[in-house]
Amino acid sequence: MTVLAPPTISRTGQAAPRPPRRRRSWTGWAFVGPFMAVFAFVFVAPIAYALYLSVFRTRLIGGTSFVGLENYQQAFTDPQFWSATWRVTLFLLVQVPIMLFLALLVALAIDSGRLYGKAFFRVAVFMPYAVPAVVATLMWGFMYGSRFGLIGNINDALGVMLPDPLSPDLVLASIGNIVTWEFVGYNMLIFYSALQVVPKSLYEAAELDGASQLQVIRSIKIPAIKGALLIATIFSIIGSFQLFNEPSILQSLAPNAITTYFTPNMYAYSLSFSGQQYNYSATVAIVMGVLTMIVAYAVQLRGTRKDR
């Protein structure tokens, strides 16, 4: 940011020691201006507008009125909202560890250098991430079908009766399976690239000291990629809380198992688009946003504290 203080000596013709006294330069703002404008327009304005919406209530009969924090009160005591939040929390607690563990495992395997066809595996595991979530969900939806899908075919061929993956008890696990399939590769790539920058000399030193591969992993590799693990965890937390695409698409296949308030985002969506309750929908979105921020921040604090 040297631009902020251009040399003025030649123009004033005075001796250098005297501190330059001049009006504050706005040049810097000219440089950050475009960013600030875009930032204000696409980031600040929608949030401000959502906040504004959340203190009103529009009804079919009676129009719009100012209600202060009533919408927030309603959200905090809304059983549907909390059941949705609890559902994604459960998802977070089960699916994210499984996914990150698998991703770590694959990253370590590829990094170990003992895998034949390393490049192929790297691409193959990453490939699902390149499939749009919508397509992936449709594809899995067909496989989950117990009448016409893969499950149905297996049932027919083997004469068994597999449990229906789209039943209310299993549908969350089925969605977890889809999300894991989609994002293992992505997280693997984060871990793998972090592993790439570990100095090879450390491995050589470990080998000289007679460390086993497991010891190398435990004492060198995992500590070295702690930052990447933290980032991946935070991304996954945010992703879990914002779960929407997968359940929303599967809903047409399992309308009774996936309710309109299955996840907080689906709840906000149906409030606003089926119920035209834009105000309450904005409130739910804000509460969920704040919750996500709190959880992500807490994890980050904990993660960085351990670093010391």
Partner: peptide
């Protein structure tokens, strides 16, 4: 899971 977030932002 970026896709989820994007989709949601888009919806929002």
């Amino acid at each position: 899971m970026f896709t989820n977030r994007r989709a949601f932002l888009r919806t929002a």
